[in-house]
């Protein structure tokens, strides 16, 4: 028999070990990517295109492609998602219609990203004849982002006190005016935080762009929306699994992974900054 005290200590120790392991996972991911990616990272790497069958050169077209798709994602998903959240939080009563919308959102957030890829292929690439392109891929990622944007926006709207709405309505504002002039500005920091976090997730997604427009290699840094494009996550996937000289390009793969990580971290920090700054203003 172990004593009560020893048992408690052992329990604490096991939990500590679990937590330590999770931190170890994160630590090893960061440490490996940073130590091995850093040496291959240079200004040239992020400011030029790949050369000599991708065994040398940089990843500028992939950066441009990722930025472009993310912009399309934002242009599509942010207004769409914010409008839907406004409907749910400001207008919808508890009807079967609003419950159906909420159930759809919950389900959409659980749909695997590869299925979004298939849907993008069927709807945008083939159905709407947009072809494999920046546009198709951006819209596909937009659909994927939609449930997150709606959920975070609705949460931000919910935090705006009812008295703000009443104040505007009491002065003779229409409901739309009270939302536009009072509710949305008050919820803006919360909405922005959610949007930036969602976009950082979209920027790192690979599966949805596999069949909707990502390409292994394009010449130049074409910014055309109806063309195939290179993207950071897809580039990393290709360099690490499909390249004919995998061992030779490994440093490039590491550097690509590090750039991708830096982009994601920067976006996340932006979101935290918005949240932090807003808290201090209250």
């Amino acid at each position: 028999m172990i004593s009560k005290k020893t048992g408690a200590f052992l329990g604490w120790f096991v939990l500590l070990l679990c937590t330590g392991t999770v931190c170890f996972f994160l630590g090893i991911i960061l440490a490996d990517l940073i130590t091995k990616g850093w040496p291959a990272l240079s200004w040239e790497f992020i400011s030029s295109g790949p050369t000599e069958g991708m065994t040398t050169g940089g990843i500028l077209p992939a950066i441009v492609g990722t930025v472009l798709t993310t912009v399309i994602t934002a242009i599509f998903a942010v207004p769409f998602g914010v409008c839907c959240a406004i409907y749910l939080n400001e207008y919808a009563k508890d009807t079967s219609f609003s419950r159906l919308i909420r159930a759809s959102i919950r389900n959409l957030s659980g749909v695997p990203s590869i299925i979004y890829g298939l849907f993008g292929l069927a709807l945008f690439v083939q159905g709407l004849s947009l072809g494999t392109s920046v546009l198709s891929a951006g819209l596909t990622l937009g659909l994927l982002s939609l449930p997150y944007i709606i959920t975070t926006t609705e949460e931000a709207l919910r935090r705006v006190p009812a008295s703000m709405r009443e104040a505007a309505l009491g002065l003779g504002a229409t409901q739309f005016e009270s939302i536009r002039d009072v509710v949305l500005p008050a919820a803006l920091p919360g909405i922005l935080t959610g949007v930036v976090l969602t976009l950082s997730r979209a920027a790192g997604e690979t599966a949805p762009i596999l069949f909707t427009g990502a390409a292994f290699y394009i010449t130049g840094t074409s910014g055309a929306l109806n063309q195939e494009f290179m993207a950071l996550p897809y580039h990393l996937y290709m360099l690490s699994t499909q390249h004919q000289a995998i061992e030779q390009v490994r440093p490039l793969a590491y550097a690509t992974a590090l750039v991708l990580l830096i982009v994601i971290v920067l976006l996340n920090l932006t979101a935290f900054y918005i949240r932090y700054k807003h808290r201090n203003n209250d």
């Binding site: 937590t19 999770v22 931190c23 996972f25 994160l26 090893i28 991911i29 490996d32 990517l33 950082s200 997730r201 920027a203 790192g204 997604e205 690979t206 599966a207 996550p233 897809y234 990393l236 996937y237 690490s240 699994t241 490994r250 793969a253 590491y254 992974a257 991708l260 990580l261 994601i264 971290v265 996340n268």
Partner: peptide, 24 residues
């Protein structure tokens, strides 16, 4: 420290984790 660490882990793209599956 721990909560942001978990959020950070969630933010790492799956393709980067897959890459580490190959190399680590």
């Amino acid at each position: 420290f721990l909560k942001p660490a978990v959020e950070m882990l969630a933010a790492i793209p799956s393709v980067a984790i897959g890459f580490l599956g190959i190399v680590v």
